[in-house]
Write a protein that binds this DNA or RNA. Structure first.
Lengths: 154, 154
DNA sequence: ATAATTAAGGACAAATATATCCTTAATTAG
DNA sequence: CTAATTAAGGATATATTTGTCCTTAATTAT
């Protein structure tokens, strides 16, 4: 459905929504461990979200790390996807046609067009803050099960 | 949503459902041209569907080519996906967790689980024959717009 | 100031997906 | 039987994604 990069980004942001604030920053080591992603690769992904568009904030040095502002926590996953330029689910055609539309639909178009708005709603109608808050229920998880005797990270 | 390989496979099969039969085979050149896919790459993909599992039939030599039996035409796209081992949409977790389930759901699980059956239904409740037959309407297309002055194929 | 800590960033490496090319084998028409 | 045609299949090439490593810059605490 999504690329690894996107999956890591979404997991990271939900985790940051839960654990971070301007005076409670989260380091990349803790973050990558928590969501079960490769550390350096995740760092790269976060960089893309700290620079230009500023969804994520970061501070270097001791007590530094990544955090989300309250404003950022109010965004939806769909908004994050737009920053990641990974909105193919919403904009794309099931069969991969570039020009699939109401005017020239592919054979699946009439079916998929009914599902797109539901996907869009799923991704848009909750803030990442709300998703994060669901994790007060301890059975809800954001990390992959760690392999016994082996670090998930690098 | 799907890989290029899967997209080409689905388009090819829908095209074959429309144009081919045991005494009306379609060559790889015509097929690739029709669906706008790279010829040799598409040939490889079809090979995987002609061998072990036999969704697609093929015959070498003059008047040879690829074709679908009536039985094959009655399969659904979901069945094709299972042959291609690309069912992640149905089996996977939005956030990429391996162990996401009712017992240990990710924060998106409760939302996505409502959409999965709809995707499944979309992919399963029409045969490829039925999809192909929609193409009697000439506005329904299965190919990408060809780039001016440039072959889409190799 | 200095040392310690942390993200930023560039370069590189590995893995996977996509694509091409060429030879071989099978089949058919003549 | 021979020549032509077509898919099969192996080898290789290219592109993209994913992942790692190392140095630099920024910040903080002492």
């Amino acid at each position: 459905m999504f690329s690894k990069s996107t999956e890591y980004a979404l997991r990271a942001i939900i985790y940051l929504a839960q654990k971070s604030s301007v005076d409670q920053k989260v380091g990349i080591a803790e973050l990558a461990e928590a969501i079960g992603s490769p550390k350096s690769f995740t760092a790269k992904i976060l960089q893309n979200l700290t620079r230009g568009n500023k969804l994520i904030n970061s501070v270097t040095g001791p007590t530094g790390g990544f955090y989300l502002t309250d404003k950022a926590k109010k965004q939806s996953l769909l908004h994050v996807l737009s920053l990641l330029e990974d909105e193919g689910i919403i904009t794309g055609c099931i069969l991969g046609l570039k020009e699939c539309s109401e005017v020239n639909p592919c054979p699946m178009h009439s079916q998929y067009k009914n599902i797109k708005p539901l996907l869009l709603d799923m991704l848009d109608h909750k803030t990442i803050q709300q998703l994060a808050s669901e994790m007060v229920d301890p059975k809800i998880v954001i990390h992959n099960i760690k392999r016994k005797g082996k670090k998930n990270n690098e």
